[in-house]
């Protein structure tokens, strides 16, 4: 994608038709009074299919909140969010769950694999949710992740990097249009982080999914199509 250096404006919408993700005037808060966190104030955001967007910002600025909202895990206090044809803000909890299983893949900072399932089973979950059983896919995915020999292991028997790789596999095995990554390399050392990052970007490109990543580190910025900064509850384009 051609990089454009627009002037610093509050409107970060590039002039490309039919964006995958659209968020307008999103207002969100957790907590109350002095304990208020994750504040978003009238945030606007769009992303196109296949884009790699990085969102940076200080701790507590609301990055995770934004991802949660985009994934339909939460409802904003005001504003609207649309992913594809789904109007998340008009959907019930159940509908959003169903939306999530088809359309979204999550990668978390703390991996969040189910500790009582094996690697293969963890990978199988999203498929199972979508009613698609495919041992073949799992085998393929394991191979792609380089973890074929770890299929029967359990998460606590894997290193951090391996766990995150499994998490990535889980996020992508059902080829969701949207992948949300919340500090995916936050718990990893430098080398492993790089490996994981590369893997993630490659796989996302293979499936053609949109990747929105919230992160601190610098590496992803170089690989991203767009970098946005979340500040004072709103997004600004950054370079």
């Amino acid at each position: 994608m051609p990089t454009v250096i627009p002037p610093a404006t509050t409107d970060a919408t590039p002039a490309v038709p039919t964006p995958l993700v659209v968020a307008r005037g999103v207002v969100m808060r957790y907590g109350a009074g002095a304990l208020t966190t994750g504040v978003l104030q009238g945030l606007n955001f769009t992303a196109h299919a296949g884009e790699f967007v990085v969102v940076v910002g200080r701790s507590g600025s609301g990055k995770s909140t934004l991802l949660n909202l985009l994934g339909g895990m939460d409802q904003p206090l005001a504003g609207e969010i649309r992913v594809g044809l789904a109007r998340l803000t008009e959907m019930s909890e159940e509908q959003r769950a169903r939306f999530r299983r088809r359309t979204v893949g999550f990668v978390f900072q703390s991996f969040n694999l189910l500790p009582t399932l094996s690697v293969a089973e963890n990978l199988a979950l999203p498929l199972a949710l979508n009613g698609r059983a495919s041992a073949l896919r799992i085998t393929e995915m394991l191979a792609r992740l380089g973890l074929s020999d770890r299929a029967a292991r359990y998460p606590d028997q894997l290193s951090g990097g391996e766990q995150q790789r499994v998490a990535i596999g889980r996020a992508l095995i059902h080829a969701p249009p949207l992948v949300l990554a919340d500090e995916p390399t936050g718990n990893l050392d430098e080398d492993t982080a790089r490996q994981v990052l590369v893997l993630l970007c490659e796989m996302v490109r293979e499936t053609g999914s949109t990747l929105i990543m919230a992160t601190h580190s610098h590496e992803p910025r170089a690989l991203a199509d767009r970098v946005l900064r979340l500040q004072h509850g709103q997004l600004r384009t950054e370079q």
Binding site: M73, E94, A97, R100, R101, R102, N112, P126, L129
Partner: peptide
């Protein structure tokens, strides 16, 4: 709790 959260994130419905 965390696991159920993950399940929810993965798209498990309440039922």
């Amino acid at each position: 709790l965390r696991e159920y959260g993950v399940l929810r994130a993965l798209g498990f419905a309440a039922g």
